[in-house]
Design a protein around this nucleic acid. Structure first.
Lengths: 214, 214
DNA sequence: CAAAAGCTAGCGAACGTTAGCTTGTTTATA
DNA sequence: TATAAACAAGCTAACGTTCGCTAGCTTTTG
């Protein structure tokens, strides 16, 4: 509910961009890119090896020269997604001034921008992780937990300083996290808003939510 | 990202409850209930007719005495989910006093409670709608749009009255909607919080997000 | 000439679905 | 009331398709 695309598509975006430097050259990269599109639009289970391969311009069997299984392709995408997300949050936080309000804005902005700039990657990372066997999922969940901790620590510090006032820190984090998560489903570059504009507004929302009245 | 279950499951809840009066008696109801569990946990594509049937205690073919296709089962679940959600939002709004802040609290509470009380139904309604053929999805999307309009109208009215102040009404709605949506993924009754407690906190968050400083 | 990357062919399993049968219960009629 | 017709709800068996994946061969390329 609430601002999914007008059609029954899972997300509004159409671009299959991967963060610079994360996609291998050649067919390996194309396989990643086309898998990303199909996993995002149809879900991992509904996207077949033959679908993916035909978009790359090869036969299904040839895909196994590049990846040992379909699950490995998904795991690689989810890894890229989670690592990029964590890296952005951490870098933003490190670059932020010691002011806890500035830190909050930095992590929220990074969180939102990651989901607006790489919507397909975000949708796949979040909605298809459950399709991975546990041994693939475990290290990825660890990255996820690190990202959560980053934001939770900022909120906790603000509360300790008396800058933030909330009935429940955990609920505040889930609320702020959810706001950004959902952006990946409805954002499209031709909506007239840049990721930065959305991120700014959501950073304001997050600050207000935490009781900052400035 | 952010407060999914610790495992790689799609949601934390285990109950397959449907709203009172929405599930048929007998096998038809059991099929709905078991389909709900499997669609929520594994996704529509990964849940097979034989899986569903064996949980009901019948053979796959026997399922077709009750529903004409797998898609019809999903469509029925999504319909129940969307109608229950809309009904709760509308009833809450009708019962609320004319004060726009009270109205906001009412719709946010209804939105959150629906997702906490029927987490599997919410996850399936929101995450599996894309798996339906378009002719099934269209009327369901109409219900969804009605629910969005309910909340958007409250926000718009508050802004017109000068009670709410936001840079962008649409962004405020997506943010508030997303907060509640996500509850379905992490909520479990043994978290020590009741749906009402979460709803109260989220209603406070929503009011703050809209610039209410009280 | 060797390695990388493609191909065809096909395996076994699982998929949604249909056909046709059995069984038990309800309903209408002689 | 007894019987027959109709129905409901399950079953087995199987259809045709698609699935992920493998084996083994050919082509391209450095």
């Amino acid at each position: 509910m609430f601002s999914t695309p007008a059609s029954h598509r899972r997300l509004a975006a159409v671009g299959t961009d991967l963060p610079p430097g994360t996609a291998p050259d050649g067919s390996r990269g194309q396989i990643l890119s086309e898998s990303l599109r199909l996993f995002a639009e149809q879900g991992y289970g509904a996207a077949s090896i033959r679908d993916i391969a035909s978009r790359v311009g090869i036969k299904g069997a040839s895909l196994y020269s590049h990846y040992p299984s379909k699950a490995h392709v998904l795991a690689e995408l989810v890894r890229i997604g989670h690592e990029e997300h964590f890296r952005r949050m951490r870098d933003a936080l490190l670059a932020a001034q010691p002011d806890v309000q500035v830190q909050l804005a930095a992590v929220v902005r990074a969180h939102v921008c990651a989901h607006a700039e790489y919507p397909m990657l975000a949708v796949v990372s979040n909605s298809e992780l459950h399709a991975l066997p546990e041994e693939f999922a475990t290290p990825l969940l660890a990255i996820r937990r690190q990202s959560e901790t980053l934001m939770l620590d900022v909120i906790q510090r603000g509360v300790n300083l008396g800058v933030f006032k909330v009935p429940d820190i955990q609920l505040a984090m889930t609320a702020i996290g959810a706001m950004g998560l959902r952006v990946a489903h409805w954002y499209t570059p031709d909506s007239g808003k840049t990721p930065e504009q959305i991120a700014d507004t959501y950073a304001l929302f997050a600050a207000r939510l935490l009781g900052v009245t400035a």
